[in-house]
Amino acid sequence: MQKYSINRKTIDWSSFTQQVNAKLQGAQSIADTYPAIQLALTLLGDNHSSYTTATGTLLYGTRSISCSDGAPTPVPANPKIGYVKVSGFSGSGTAATVFAESIQASIKQADTDSIRGWIVDLRGNTGGNMWPMLAGIGPILGEGVAGYFIDPDGNATSWAYQKGASIIDQTQQVSVETPYTLRKSNPKVAVLTDRATASSGEAITISFKNRSNTRSFGTSTCGLSTTNSSMVLSDGAILNLTQGTLADRTKTLYGQQVQPDETYYSATAVDKAVAWVLQ
């Protein structure tokens, strides 16, 4: 934590260690340390780091934000608007490829010559694995660098979509075997967000920031627009540690809630998005 935390330069590590060690008193097993680990996660102050025990239990610290919202208003079918929903997803491997391909399949199914633009619905996307999301939405997002991870020292690592694959700094992450190409390239895109758009959902939201012919509608996102890296510990437990801040293609940093271009609630956000695509 002291070496890699996103807040490593601002935390008082002497006080941090003292508080965590005090919580460890009497611990006789790894399981006995869980309260101290949860305290450490709280003291990190990033709201995003977590710890998965060797038996699969997910532990968080005390969080100062909540990533929840009401049920999203459905987007009405319109022959002039393509609609695609990108939900949260936490799988990997083959499951991640299948998830990416399912998004591209829904894009292909919705695409027609009469479409004037697209609505990308990220409401309720609580995050998980961003790479299949990015690979899936790529045909609408377009090719090239869409954002960056930036650490506290200012080192930037890019993320991109190219030829059916999501990419981190030239390294392919998830790839669709037969990527779809839109009938009309570089389309008009309206993005929908709400308070339940979090973490990787926010990464996809940011991917559309500063894209041409694009506008976002809804409410601000949850505020977990930071990046986690996983560290496997000696007993098989995993520390998911927040190490960097998400930035858009212009390297504008986020780290907090991502604000929409137009703030509206529920049905009004949908109506405004539809009207903008059609105008």
Rank of each mutant, 00 (worst) to 15 (best):
K184N: 15
G147D: 02
R195M: 11
P139Q: 00
V145T: 12
G124W: 01
K80S: 10
G88K: 05
T171E: 15
T171D: 04
S175P: 04
R183P: 12
S166D: 06
K80T: 11
L134N: 00
S102Q: 06
Q109V: 10
G127P: 00
Q109M: 09
P152L: 11
G201Q: 06
K163F: 04
V189N: 01
T94G: 14
R183D: 09
V120F: 07
S92L: 08
G127D: 00
G82S: 14
I81G: 00
I119V: 04
S200Q: 05
D69P: 09
A110H: 04
W159Q: 02
P152T: 07
E177T: 10
G61E: 12
T73S: 08
S158I: 15
R183A: 08
G138I: 13
P187S: 05
I119L: 01
L192T: 06
G127A: 14
A196F: 00
S64P: 12
T197F: 06
A160H: 13
E202W: 07
T197Y: 03
G70D: 05
D113F: 06
P132D: 14
S66Q: 14
A100F: 02
V174H: 10
A196N: 00
G117R: 08
G136E: 02
A203S: 06
W159L: 11
G70S: 05
N186A: 03
A198F: 12
A190D: 03
W131R: 09
I150S: 05
A203P: 08
G164V: 08
Y161M: 12
A146C: 08
T157K: 09
I167W: 13
S106H: 11
G154Y: 02
V191R: 05
P79S: 05
Q109N: 07
I168Q: 10
G128C: 08
A156E: 15
A156T: 13
G128Y: 00
T171M: 07
I115S: 11
I65F: 09
A110T: 12
P79Y: 05
G82L: 02
S166R: 01
R183N: 08
T126H: 07
Y83I: 10
V174D: 04
A203V: 10
N155M: 08
T97W: 15
I204E: 11
A190Y: 06
A71I: 15
E177G: 13
G164Q: 01
K188G: 04
G93L: 07
E177Q: 06
G142W: 02
